[in-house]
């Protein structure tokens, strides 16, 4: 049963996905639509395999930009959230700015960032960080605030200072919130990197899509899209895995063990 259950869980999603692909394939083949307009999934797959070397060559820079940008974003979110937790005034100063940063249209910002910082890794890192930073930051700040008053008071009564309370209580309390934010922002990360590359890069999925489009190869555009989807799904899965490992108590005690001797000791 333990092995069958995960399969049973993903079966509906897999079926829906297969159905969609089949419908698409039939439309493309029987509808008489030119492959330069709507290529069938089978053709996308075949072309992806044929161009696997070029795809791989352009996927690596995107992975690098995504991971580097996300790492920076994570570090910044943690540092700033901790600062804001210790200095509530800073929160009032920073949050309006951060919210404003989320209103910037990426289409306009990406070319500017490339203009300012060139075609290297730096503009990609900045753009990935820009789109992924906010959900994690907000989640962390909300998570700190969700710390149980009783635990904080108890720690204070034990003689713990602010730092100790932060590390021992506020940070662990924020973990479930943080991972919720992480799962949201990690789905933006690859898209952010691709956007940055689209605006200007030597190599990368973004620039690959752009040139494929300019060469009237929608099949290769879609192949790159598929790769980016797989990347995002993999990162999402990784985030879930890390959450499991980082919070082993989450799955404990859903049924609660019985108390063998609640009354027997007097």
């Amino acid at each position: 049963m333990a092995l069958i259950r995960p399969f049973a869980k993903i079966l509906p999603a897999a079926l829906a996905f297969a159905l969609l692909l089949t419908a698409w394939e039939l439309c493309a083949r029987l509808g008489g639509i030119a492959p330069t307009v709507l290529p069938a999934p089978s053709r996308v797959l075949a072309q992806a395999w044929e161009n696997r070397a070029a795809l791989a060559e352009n996927t690596l820079p995107t992975i690098r930009a995504t991971l580097a940008g996300f790492a920076c974003s994570l570090l910044a979110a943690f540092t700033l959230s901790a600062l804001v937790d210790f200095l509530p005034r800073l929160r009032r100063a920073l949050f309006p700015l951060l919210i404003a940063s989320q209103t910037l249209p990426l289409v306009a910002i990406a070319p500017l960032v490339v203009l300012w910082f060139g075609f290297g890794l730096l503009p990609k890192i900045l753009l990935v960080a820009l789109v992924t930073f906010f959900p994690m930051m907000v989640a962390l700040v909300e998570g700190y605030a969700a710390t149980s008053m009783e635990i904080s008071q108890m720690l204070a009564a034990m003689g713990a200072g602010r730092w100790r309370i932060f590390w021992a209580a506020r940070l662990p309390s924020a973990l479930p919130y943080f991972f919720a934010g992480l799962r949201i922002s990690i789905t933006y990360a690859v898209v952010g990197a691709i956007f940055a590359e689209y605006a200007g890069a030597a190599k990368g999925l973004g620039i690959y899509m752009l040139s494929a489009k300019n060469n009237f190869r929608p099949d290769l555009v879609l192949a790159a899209v598929a790769v980016s989807s797989v990347l995002t799904l993999a990162l999402f899965g990784l985030a879930v895995l890390v959450q499991r490992l980082a919070m082993p108590w989450e799955n404990a005690g859903s049924e609660g063990k019985s108390d063998p001797d609640a009354g027997g000791r007097a």
Binding site: P248, W249, A252, G253, S254, G256, K257, S258, D259, D261, A262, G264, R265
Partner: peptide, 18 residues
């Protein structure tokens, strides 16, 4: 304290009395 064997348990695994 009636907790022998539960040293490595998570609090969520304990009953209210424990």
């Amino acid at each position: 304290f009636g907790l022998a064997g539960f040293e490595r348990a998570w609090p969520a695994e304990l009953s209210g009395g424990m």
